[in-house]
Design a protein around this nucleic acid. Structure first.
Lengths: 231, 231
DNA sequence: CGATGTGTTGATGTGCGTCAATAGAAGTGG
DNA sequence: CCACTTCTATTGACGCACATCAACACATCG
């Protein structure tokens, strides 16, 4: 456990404001995990003994259907924590977690977390704010999945990945398209088709994993009153 | 504000364990609202000044699409609270709320809630547990919406509305079917058709707003490997 | 008893998934 | 460095689950 990792964890929204001593106590038994390639961190239903901070790489949280189909619930990038809330869910992970390529993760035992949480009243408030935010995002997802078309969800994704107000912007997709597609509740083929449609309309240009939004206002408009993969 | 209402609120999971004094303080400025018929309590984006306890009747939380279509996020029955988490979301309601018929609601100012929350450390933990539970349910919804068919969602609803283990059970639908349908992310017509299909298979019988599950095991099996509205 | 609202059932349309073929991109090994 | 495999992404053809549109049955209520 290097000092820079310790400092990085301290920058997570949840732990910002912790004193150096509290931080050290939180990470007393934490360990750094260097994961190569794709590896499952935990499965749904597993007994939760730790939660994670992403130092580098990426992680996907997902569910599996009875048939084995996968739905990505969330994609986690460096700087974020995940599975903290599990402490309050009877101690079992509600989702699967797996890395997306080489990653460096900090694994923090739930016990240390609970101890820090109880000692620091302010952190409970931050925790509540953090979980409430996730709740809000999930409500957005549910709305999008039921009230929006595939095209609208993809457009919404592009818009939320780029800064507001600016007429044009660039997005770099760090994870594979099928993962993003699953995150959006769409098949990879459909995702590809939507991008193609937007490309033909001159709203975006695509080069490998980089998407350039050429006309943000146009994309917003398209999202509102078209959102269809049809001509 | 009657004493029985006060006691009722104290039975909500979130407030179980509060002392009588704390409870009185929490409800110091609370007021009882008798709502006739269908009435909007608050709109998405409204500044949140209170959260609610359902004493009788029912409430639906929902979102609206740009086109005006509605998606019911949650149906709340007597004994439950809603919109508590809003305190931590910048003070704006993330959903619409409206009553489903005559209801008696207790409206509790957020200020009183925050004060009680800060004075009672244990309640923060209960709050975390409560929100985490909602989080978990929403994850289930997202999974169901993306990985299950309409039939599977309906069957899942019937199964979770009835006690486990018992071979047969009765469900009384207190709210209109189109509301339940929207909650399940399904059109009312489809909901009706699924029930018809299950009726023909002899798995359930329907009489008005009462559904009798005749063969729970059969329903579970149907959910797993059929789940289709087709013959 | 007409009026209005809720649920059911039938006919038709369509958005998106499925299946399949191909094109690139990226990694592997001689 | 170039053949070879392997994997991701794209594009086309087709099918299906569910929505949509519409007609009707059946309540409840003034």
């Amino acid at each position: 456990m290097q000092e820079q990792d310790l400092a990085a964890v301290g920058k997570a929204p949840l732990f910002a404001g912790l004193s150096w001593e509290e931080l050290q106590q939180l990470l007393a038994h934490a360990r750094v995990r260097h994961v190569k390639g794709h590896e499952t961190l935990f499965a749904e239903g597993d007994k939760a003994q730790a939660f994670y901070f992403v130092a580098s790489g990426a992680v996907r949280l997902y569910r599996l259907s009875a048939k084995g189909d996968e739905k990505v619930i969330e994609i986690l990038l460096p700087g974020s924590t995940f599975a903290e809330a599990v402490v309050f869910l009877g101690g079992h992970y509600p989702v699967y977690a797996a890395t997306l390529g080489d990653s460096r993760l900090i694994e923090i035992p739930t016990q240390d977390f609970v101890r820090t949480l109880k000692a620091n009243g302010e952190m409970a408030m931050k925790m509540l704010a953090s979980i409430s935010m996730r709740l809000h995002h999930l409500i957005n997802d549910v709305q999008a999945l039921t009230l929006e078309t595939a095209g609208q969800r993809v457009a919404g994704y592009l818009l939320e990945q780029s800064p507001e107000g600016v007429p044009s912007a660039d997005i770099h997709m760090v994870v594979h398209k099928n993962v993003i597609a699953s995150r959006l509740g769409v098949k990879a083929e459909t995702f590809s088709r939507v991008l193609a449609a937007l490309r033909e309309l001159g709203l975006i240009t695509v080069a490998g994993n980089d998407i350039h939004i050429a006309d943000r206002a146009g994309l917003e408009k398209w999202r509102e009153d078209v959102g269809s993969t049809r001509p």
